[in-house]
Structures are given as C-alpha cells and as structure tokens.
Design a protein around this nucleic acid. Structure first.
Length: 836
DNA sequence: GGCTCTTTCGTTTTT
DNA sequence: CGAAAGAGCC
C-alpha cells in the first residue's frame, strides 16, 4: 500500500489554497446574502439554491434559469460559509457550460475561482489523474487521444492482429471499446457470448496494451481510470469523500452508467454529502450515446432524495410555443412529470409551412429569414434547425446564392483540422516521443522518403521488442532506416532547440524545424492552413495568459494543496521550480510545462468550429447542437416521417420517445417566433423521396398553430404531381432532366402570398434508370395511380405511392405510409384510393 | 511516394 | 448526389 495521507485537511487549510484571494470566507449576514445573491429568484429557485446538505434532485425545465440556480447555489454555499472553495465540486458535460459557470461565479465571489473543482467530467478526471498518475498506473506526462486518434489507434491494433477490417470496422470497434469502458468493463469483464465478441474483447485487450506502451489514454479511459482508482484505493477514496462536502451535477439526464458510478465513489449514498443533481428528463437526447435517463430515478431512490424541486417557470418563450412543447411531450410515457409555464402572454402562433420540395423549402426559409432581418432581427437571432447534417446542404446553397451570411455549426473544429493536428503531433513528440499515433501522423509529413514498406518494417520491429516506434528506429536497415534516423534526429533537435522557450516560441520553432510552415508556404492552397497555424499560436498565447503560465507566474505553496504533499502525490520528488514558465498546478502542486498543459487543453477542448466570426449570420445547426441555446426566431425544418422522427429510430418505442424529446428541445429553443416546415419531396442519397408530414405536427395543439400553406393539402398533389404529368406528356422533360430541377408556376396559394409572378422551384424526381422509367410508365396504367400520388388505404391510412410494378394480377405498389412504414401491396388485393 | 480512379456509404455525437 | 477512403498505377 502506498503511503498516502488521509488526514484530510480541515476546511481552513483548504481556504488557504486561495492565497491570492483577499478574503477567503467573508461572513455575510443572512440579510446581505439575501439582497446580493438571492434577489429576483422565484420560490422554487430559492428553495433549490438554499437547500441544506442533503441529496436533492432538481428538475429544471427548458429556460427555467438552471444555470443561474447552479451558480447561485455555489455562491450561496460559499458566502454562507457552509463550505470552502476546496470542498465543493461542480461537474458539467461541456467546456462551454463549465466556463460559463466559472465566469458567472467570478462575478459573484470575491475569490479567484481558478483552482476550484469546476469542470467537465473529463476535465476533472484529467486533473485527478494528473495528481495521482502514479497510483493510477499512468506515466506522468500521459497524452489524451481524441475521437479520431482513438479510431486510428484501434485501426493499427486490428492491422497488427491481422484481422479483417471488413469484419472489424475500426470505427465500430472503437465504439465497442468506448461502450464497454462506459459500462465500467475491462476486457476480462466482457461477456464472451459469441465468437465475434470474443475477438472484440481480444482487440480491446491489445488496444489497452498499446495505449499503455505509448503512454496515451482515450476519453473513456480518463473516466474509467479515475473511477477505478477511487474504487480500489481506500486512502484516496476516503480523502476525496471527506473533502468534497458538496457536489453539483449539471445535465444529470445525460450521465452514463460510468459517470453515475464515478459520482457515487465521490459521494456514496448515505455519507451525508450535499449532492445536487440538476437535470431534465424531457431533454434527454443522448441515449444513443450511452446516456441513461434512468440515472435520475435511480438517484432519487438510492439517495433517498426527499427534496425534488421542479423549476417549471419558463423565462424564455411565449405561451403558444410552450403550449406546443407541453402538448407534444405529454405523449411520452415514464416522465418524471413537469409542465412549463410562462407569464409572458400567448405571443404569436406557431407558423407551419408545407413546401413542394426541399429546394422550395430552402427558398422559403431564405425569404422568411430575410423578412425577419428586415424587420430588425439580427441574423444571429435566427436559427435554422434540422435533424441531420445532410439537410444543411440545400439550405446553405440557397443562403449562399442569395449572399446571406450564415454560420453552420458542427463542422470541423479548430483542433481537429489536419494542419493543426499535424502541428500538435510534432509538439506531442517533443513531450513524449513514444506516442506512436503522433509519430505515424508526421513521420512522413512533410514527405521525407519514409514509405509504407519502411513503416511496416518499423512496426514489425516495434511489435517484436514491445517498444515504441521511436525506440525501434535502429532496427530498420537500409535507406528507409537512415531516413527514419534522420527523423529521430529532427525530433531530438527540436526538443533541444525549444528548451527554455516560451510556448509561443516553441510552436514557432517547431513549425520551422519540422518543415510544416515551409510545406504550406509552397503548397498551392496552403494559405488558409498557414492562417490556421497562426491561429494555433494565438490560441497558445491566449492559453498561457489565461492559465497563468506567464513570466510572472509564482509558485504556490504546494504542501497545503488539497492535503497532499508533492512527495506523497508523486511518491517521488517533483522537479525543482527552476525555469521561468514552470508553474505547479494550483491544485496538485505538480509541475507542468506550459507545453504539456497546452496539449492537454487541445485534447480536451476541440475548440469552436470558427466560421466567419464577428459577422452577423444566420445560425444553422442540428437540433442536437442547439440544445442549451436560445433564439428569437427558430425554424424547425424537414418535419417529415422518416427524417424527423428519423426512420432508424422507429424500430422501438424508446427511439420514438427520444425523437419526441428532440422535437421538444427544438421547440423550446424559440423565444418569440417558431416556424415548422416540411416538404413533399426531398433529395436524399441522390434519390428523390416522397415524404409524409411528421406525426409530431399532429401532436401539437391546433389552437397554437397557424398554417401558412393550406392545411392538409394532400401529398403528391403539388409539385410532384405536376412534374409527373409533365413527364408523362413528354413536355419540358428535357430541360427538367438537364437541369436536374424544374421551374414552374407557383401554386395558387403561393401566388397569393408572394405575388402573381412568383416562380417556384422543385427538385425533380428524375427516374435514374430505364427500369425505373419503365416501372413508372407501367404505373400510369393503373386507374388513377401514379408515382408520387397520395393514396388512402383502409388499414394504413394516408400514404404516398413510391413505385408501381408489373401489370394485371401481378401489379404491385410500394407505398410510404409514414408511421406505418413503407409497404409493398398487391394491387389485386389491396384497395388503394387516390386522394386529390 | 504521390497522384488518380474507384468504391463505399450516408442520424444524432457535449468529451 | 457527393465526400472520403482505399486501391491501383506511374
């Protein structure tokens, strides 16, 4: 057993942690605290904020002031002296939420909140593991793999094991491994129910060995390692359980099994800590990723929660919008039960629009958004939401062609860009040359004559000796070997040249020595990449300033930090604080170089996907990424069966309920104005699909809706029919096929709104093959039935005819019945009535 | 070793 | 349809 302190310090010495804070614990009178902090809270918020040291579940509806409650509670606890800043932990999911909390707290407290345990699950686990790297069995400077690093690491394992990549798809295998870890399972714990799983467990084991050899951990590993150390080391466990008297968890509905287990290690039920779990079961949209809404009810039961506080007062949206949200979500079962209310009045009705095609829908979005902007709404207050990323394309092209600034969220993020990853790989090799992932990324970039054959030899050698690629270079003979040796020399000289430099200088030096800068300077489209590399330097500079790695950084007294002495933490002597820019971590006293700290930062925080920042632009994003945001005007697009709710989610009831929650999240993003739109036809995977409007539209209260297009116009009656007729006549077909789309006169209702000459565009359902064309022709022979036509079936209801095949008694039709799915029907038996 | 042709695949994804 | 990754060619 390692010598480990469990004489956890009292709250007093923890307060000393904040040596730079003027008054660690001001004794405020209740009245003053009331005025300063609690003013303006509604009764439920106040109740939540001022709860005692007990387990509590806060059901925080959308727009109910959740973040305010969380931060105010922290400030209140500190100012009341219920706990010191070191005795409290607040966990979130996103860096953004953590940052937001810290910023707001700084404004409420007289301390520097840096050093407090406020952060993401992964960020806090990282901090914990950096402090206890030795006990956790990690190398001191362990690096963190992001999602794509993880996949390529897994891929290497699969290759090394000589397994078929068709059968073991790297991405899926890495999913399997992450899933196992998130269930708290190591390879030996995997249930080997079949041959495939047995093999997967083997890959998992080999992957683990590889990570260990390279000194890297993936995201899931951060959580699992931290959990295991708490579970297996009584001294550590005792210390932290004693230390953290109050724990606050944000977005509790999104926690997975491991995160909940992790939390229970820090604050087991019955130990009397104040665990404050905030969440909204109706906004649980990450079950597909392992989130367990059930953790909320488990928490309530296991912690014998007596106080469930519901925050139902909504400060964001007008009445019609909330009515729509409430009515929709009421259709879900197993809810914890919550109804949003507002005092803002009914506001405007929810507008509903039906379009003939996805192209048309985009055109309508563009015009409506422009109208809003002309009325004085900033573009950044207009959000266009969609279920899946592929839907953004048509919308983007409409906006782009009209010259309207827009910003798409969810693309490549800063630290994920290829050139930035290359630069980071060099930096990582300076820190840890055994990081094979980074080695392979840049060993031949820029090109230095090291090809696949050479690398194969190198990897064989490394595998045989159980060493890293870097260490195995000498084993490769010939020209490849000498090129490899040159690369090693390059890295070594880089390490020497950057000794004692500031972070900025290190990066600049690396860019030149590695040849990266030169490569992009001569590359024909390297200009943008060079800019990003400059941006990397800026990011590093900002990081240095923010995290206090500046030249004036002063070493804090380490022996009082969190009750661990440096010697005890590391079970060895920490490096001396010699060079400028070497600052011990405020919490652990561990000496970190700014470079190492920056690399960790880069792994844990992928950065924004910066589009033209600063420009007032319309916001485009998936519904998932809209969670937590709000806008004056929101468009929810593509409300069609199969798209939203998505067809892949329809196989089970839980899937549908998650889709409904997703719709609920989408609706509750809107403050003043909400638009819902759907289209009769849509281009997907290069094929035109005829869709039925989403069932979610039928689940909204009629009284809150205003149809911009005639209600229930009937599918297949608009554009699709017109095109079909034109095609059958053979008129105008050539131009339609040539352009891939058709121009036509707008339907009557649209002319009424937009003027007589309004043109209308639609994606044409161009038959792709002769076979399809023939089938469509056959279809024309069946009394009144045509592809694209709306039909009615006694059992399945309204649907859209997709295909007609055969003739006479063999004639059959494929019909999309929306919620009943797509069916093949024999026309001699099934009775299909065309609807007009 | 780098370029071009071909094949494959397409829901959402906070870290 | 269109991106991205892999295979194959010079």
């Amino acid at each position: 057993m390692t010598a480990h302190p469990h004489d956890a310090p009292g709250t007093d010495s923890l307060d000393d942690l904040f040596g730079d804070a003027p008054a660690p614990r001001p004794a405020l009178g209740a009245a003053e605290a009331q005025n300063g902090l609690l003013k303006g809270l509604n009764p439920e918020q106040l109740a939540a904020v001022t709860l005692g040291q007990e387990p509590a579940l806060i059901l925080a509806g959308a727009g109910s002031g959740k973040t305010r409650v969380l931060t105010t509670r922290i400030a209140w606890l500190l100012r009341q002296g219920h706990v010191g800043p070191g005795g409290l932990m607040a966990v979130t999911f996103t860096n953004k939420a953590a940052k937001e909390m810290s910023t707001r707290l700084s404004a409420m407290l007289p301390y520097n909140v840096r050093g407090m345990w406020i952060g993401t699950f992964h960020g806090l686990c990282n901090r914990f593991l950096r402090a206890h790297w030795k006990l956790a069995g990690l190398p001191q400077g362990f690096q963190i793999l992001d999602a794509s690093d993880t996949v390529s690491a897994v891929k290497r394992v699969i290759k090394a094991m000589n397994l078929d990549e068709e059968r073991f798809v790297p991405k899926q295998v890495s999913w399997f491994i992450a899933g196992a870890k998130e269930d708290g399972l190591r390879p030996k714990d995997i249930d080997l129910r079949d041959e495939q799983t047995r093999k997967l467990a083997e890959i998992y084991q080999a992957y683990e060995d590889q990570c260990k050899r390279e000194g890297v951990v993936d995201f899931a590993e951060l959580m699992l390692r931290a959990y295991e150390l708490m579970r297996d080391n009584a001294a550590v466990r005792e210390h932290y359980q004693h230390r953290f008297q109050y724990l606050l968890v944000d977005e509790f509905q999104d926690t997975n099994k491991l995160q909940y287990a992790w939390l229970k290690m820090f604050a087991p039920p019955g130990r009397g800590q104040g665990v404050f779990a905030v969440g909204d079961d109706d906004q649980s949209i990450y079950a597909f990723r392992g989130a367990r809404v059930g953790n909320m009810s488990d928490f309530e039961r296991e912690y014998r929660v007596r106080r469930v506080v519901k925050l139902e007062q909504n400060y964001r949206s007008y009445g019609h919008i909330l009515d729509a949200a409430n009515e929709l979500i009421s259709r879900n079962s197993h809810r914890l039960g919550k109804n949003l209310r507002t005092e803002m009045g009914p506001g405007e009705p929810v507008r509903v629009n039906e379009a003939a095609s996805d192209f048309n829908e985009a055109q309508w979005l563009l015009e409506e958004a422009q109208a809003l902007h002309r009325q004085g709404l900033p573009r950044s207050e207009i959000a266009i939401l969609y279920r899946s990323n592929a839907q953004s394309r048509v919308i983007e092209s409409a906006l782009f062609n009209a010259g309207v600034p827009y910003r798409v969220y969810g693309g490549l993020r800063f630290f994920e860009r290829a050139e930035v990853k290359h630069a980071l790989a060099y930096l990582r090799l300076i820190e840890n040359a055994n990081d094979d992932t980074s080695f392979l990324r840049v060993v031949n970039f820029p090109a230095r004559g090291i090809g696949a054959r050479t690398l194969e030899q190198l990897q064989d050698a490394a595998r045989q000796s159980g060493r890293s690629l870097y260490q195995s270079v000498a084993a490769v003979p010939g020209k490849g070997g000498s090129n490899l040796a040159a690369f090693v020399n390059l890295i070594e000289s880089m390490r020497n040249l950057t000794q004692g430099l500031t972070l900025r200088e290190i990066i600049e030096q690396m860019l030149e020595t590695s040849g990266l800068a030169e490569f992009y300077r001569t590359d024909k489209d390297g200009a943008e990449r060079l800019e990003n590399l400059d941006e990397l330097i800026n990011a590093a500079e900002a990081f240095v300033t923010q995290e206090g790695f500046g030249k004036d950084a002063v070493a804090l007294p380490v022996d009082e930090l969190g009750g661990f002495t440096p010697g005890q933490i590391a079970a060895g002597d920490p490096p001396a604080i010699a060079a400028v820019n070497l600052t011990p971590d405020a919490e652990t006293g561990e000496i970190v170089s700014p470079l190492a700290a920056f690399l960790t930062h880069a792994s844990l925080e992928a950065g924004d996907n910066q589009a033209q920042a600063g420009q007032d632009a319309i916001q485009l994003m998936t519904v998932h990424s809209a969670k937590g945001l709000e806008f004056d005007a929101v468009f929810i697009t593509g409300l069609e069966e199969g798209l939203f709710p998505h067809e892949n989610s329809l196989s089970d009831g839980d899937g549908l309920e998650e889709e409904r929650r997703l719709m609920y999240v989408a609706i509750t993003r809107a403050r003043q104005r909400l638009y819902l739109s759907f289209s009769q036809t849509r281009m997907l995977h290069g094929q035109t699909r005829y869709n039925v409007k989403s069932r979610f539209l039928d689940e909204l209260p009629e009284a809150s809706l205003k149809w911009l297009t005639p209600r229930n116009q009937g599918f297949g009656s608009g554009f699709a029919r017109e095109y079909q007729q034109a095609w059958e006549r053979g008129s105008g077909l050539k131009s339609m096929v040539g352009a891939g789309r058709v121009e036509r006169q707008a339907p009557a209702w649209q002319q009424e709104r937009e003027g007589k000459d309004a043109p209308s565009f639609g994606g044409a359902p161009v038959p792709k093959t002769m076979k399809q064309a023939a089938a469509a022709k056959v279809g024309a022979e069946h009394g009144g039935l045509r592809v694209g036509k709306a039909v009615f079936h006694n059992k399945f209801g309204e649907g859209v005819l997709l295909t007609l095949e055969g003739s006479g008694p063999d004639a059959r039709a494929q019909v999309n019945f929306g919620r009943h799915g797509t069916k093949w029907l024999a026309l001699s038996v099934a009775k299909l009535t065309p609807i007009d």
